[in-house]
């Protein structure tokens, strides 16, 4: 399992697309927002938590189709499926690798982009915690979507259509938590909900992903 994680991380670093692209995309989306809504700092600081959350979510989505597709194309997935690793574990580890290469950098970069969006000082803690709790759920849900569409020629667009509705609860609680933090309100309720969703998704979705992968491999 650890070998698989190390391999996936190494591949992400070597391919050059893993860490860099998602982050760059996150930056660009956030930079585009003021062009769209105007440079009014009061408005920007009000919408900052939501914008940062949506940008993070889209950046996550961007790299999802690579979770299983590359391994499927070069035959590694067949070999992994016949290896001693349980496929549930493979699905979980691959989602984890996706989170480390995509979600974690987003969490770390978010405060810098918060500055650009004029996020109120009070909001940084809540933003960081919400992303830290929420991005794992995005990766696991995304891995399920990627597993569903792994055998398809043009699965990317379809995967977005399948995954995005499932992102709704995570987005709502995550953005709500960041917003409440920015407004100096108590954010414990959305935080618990967000943590609950992440924990539930982490515990259950790898089984669904593995079941779906088995179907796609036969």
């Amino acid at each position: 399992m650890i070998a698989l994680l190390v391999r996936d991380l190494r591949l992400a670093v070597r391919a050059g697309g893993g860490f860099g692209l998602g982050l760059a995309f996150f930056l660009i989306v956030v930079v585009l927002v003021p062009f769209g809504v105007g440079p009014d700092t009061a408005l920007l600081s009000r919408i900052a938590p939501g914008v940062l959350w949506i940008a993070a979510l889209l950046a996550c989505l961007l790299s999802l189709d690579r979770i299983f597709a590359l391994d499927f194309e070069d035959g590694s997935l067949d070999l992994l499926a016949t290896s001693p690793l349980p496929l549930e574990g493979v699905a979980a580890v691959k989602a984890l690798a996706h989170w480390v290469t995509t979600g974690l950098p987003l969490v770390l970069a978010a405060p810098v982009l918060g500055l650009l969006m004029n996020l109120p000082l009070a909001g940084y803690t809540a933003l960081m915690i919400s992303l830290m709790l929420g991005t794992p759920a995005l990766s696991v849900i995304g891995a399920f979507g990627a597993a569903l569409t792994v055998g398809l020629k043009r699965g990317g667009l379809l995967m977005s259509l399948l995954v995005l509705p499932m992102y709704v609860p995570t987005l709502i609680f995550g953005a709500e938590m960041a917003r409440r933090g920015a407004e100096g309100l108590d954010y414990s309720a959305p935080m618990f909900m967000l943590a609950g969703i992440s924990a539930g998704a982490l515990a259950l979705l790898p089984f669904a992903s593995a079941a779906v992968l088995r179907v796609n491999l036969r």
Binding site: I141, M166, V168, I172, P190
Partner: peptide, 13 residues
Amino acid sequence: VFAVLSRYAVNFW
């Protein structure tokens, strides 16, 4: 599962 979750999330929101 996610549809039901969304229903509650949206209520909360």
